[in-house]
Design a protein around this nucleic acid. Sequence first.
DNA 1: AACACAATAATTGTATACAATATTATTAAC
DNA 2: GTTAATAATATTGTATACAATTATTGTGTT
Lengths: 227, 227
Amino acid sequence: MDNSLTVKASIEQIVERITDAVMEHRLPPGSKLAEDKLASAFNVSRTKIRQAFILLANEGLITLHANRGAFVTSPTTEQTRDIFKTRRLIEPEIIREVTAKATAQDLARLRKHLKEESKARHADDRRKVIRLSGEFHLLLAELGGNQVINKIMMELCPLTCLIIALYDGPKITACPEDEHSQIVDAIENKDPATAIKLMKRHLSHIEDELNLDAYQKREIHWEAIYS
Amino acid sequence: MDNSLTVKASIEQIVERITDAVMEHRLPPGSKLAEDKLASAFNVSRTKIRQAFILLANEGLITLHANRGAFVTSPTTEQTRDIFKTRRLIEPEIIREVTAKATAQDLARLRKHLKEESKARHADDRRKVIRLSGEFHLLLAELGGNQVINKIMMELCPLTCLIIALYDGPKITACPEDEHSQIVDAIENKDPATAIKLMKRHLSHIEDELNLDAYQKREIHWEAIYS
DNA sequence: AACACAATAATTGTATACAATATTATTAAC
DNA sequence: GTTAATAATATTGTATACAATTATTGTGTT
C-alpha cells in the first residue's frame, strides 16, 4: 500500500501527500517540516523536498523561515477574512458555470461524492470528513471548467482546511452535510440563483462558526509563560 | 547598474527579472530558457534557477517539458478566455474595495502611475507601456488590500502580458490611456458602479482586440516552410 | 543527394558534499 | 541553582559531481 519507502516520489506527489496531511489535520499549524526526515520518508534527496517546499510555500500552506526551515502555516485572522471573501466572490461563478453546463455524468459524480461524505460522517472519521468537505468544493471547481479558477480553488481549499484546524473547536465538523446536498439539488434543478444563495450562505456558515480569537488566545498564553 | 554578474540573486529576484522580461516581451512565447545560461547570467548555481523555474511554471509563465527544459508559455485561446473571465470576476471586487477605502495618498499613487504611463506612451516605449499597463491593475489590487486577491492578480497580469505578446498585432498598444484615467476618476468620485462598468469594458476591450487565431496562423506558417 | 543509424556533445535530473547558520549541550561564573 | 558564554551538534543553503536523457553531428548506405 505505502510505497513511499521503495519508489521515488515526484515533486507533485510530495506536494500532494503533504497537502493531504495538512487538509486532514495530521500536520497541525506550526508543525516543523524537517528536510532530512521528509527526504528519507519519500526516499528522495533534500533537493526535491526543497522544491516541493517552494510550491507549498507559494500556496501559503507552509511558511519558510530563512535558515530555520519550513513550518505549517498558522493563518492570521486577516488572511482568513481575505480567503473567505475571495471564496464568496469566486464560488458563485463556479456555481453559475456548473449549473449551466453540468451533464448527467457530472451530477452523478457530485452525488457519488455526497455519498462518500455521508459515509465518512457516519463512520465518525473526522479527518476524512474535513478533507472530503474541501474536495466537494474542488469537484465543483473542476466541473466548472475554468482552469484558472480551478487552480485558485486548489490553493484556497487546503488553506481553508488549515484555518478550520486552527480556529475550529474539536467538536464541530466543517460543512454540514445537508448544505452540500442542497446545493447539488439546486444545480440539478437548473436553479443557479438558489444554488448561489446556498453556497454563499454555506461559506458564511463556515466562517461564522470559526472561533477567530482562539489563536490569539494561544499567543497570549505563550507570552504568559515567559512573564 | 546591472549587478547580476557580481551579486548573487535570490530566487525571488530571479523570478521577478524573468517575469519582467516576459511582461516586456523581451522573452517572447516559446523562448527556451537554458539553465546554464541563466545560472551564469545571475551568477548562481543551476539549483536556484530550477527553483525559480518551479515558481514560474506554477504561475503558468513558463512550461516545463521533462528532460527538455523550460520554455516561455504560449497560452492557448482557452486559457486566454479563462484568464479574462477570471479577471472580469475579480477586478470589479478590487474596484469596490479601492473605491470604498482609497485615501488621498492612494489616489496620488494612482495619478503618479498614470503620468508614468503617459510618459512611456509619448516616448513610444512600447515595452514599458505594456508593463506599466499591467502594473496599473496590480497597483489597484494592492490598494484593494485583499492579499489573496492581490496574489491572484500578480499571476494573472504577467499572463495577460504574455497573451498580448502572442495575439496582439505589433501596432496596437494594450490598455488605451484614457480608460485607465477614467477608472481613476470614477474611483476619486466615489462612484463604484461607474468604475466597475469602466473596468469591465476596459478588460473586454483588451480581449476583443486580440487576434485569437494569430498563433494558429503561425503554427500553419511553420509547417508551410517545410512543405 | 536523401535517409538511416551511430557516435558525440549538450542539457536536464538527482544526489551529495561542503559552507553557513541555528540549535542544543556543556561548562564556568556568580 | 540560575545565568552567560562557549563548544558541539544538527539543520539549512548553495554549489557541484554524476547519471539519465535529449539534441547534434558525422558517417555510411541506397
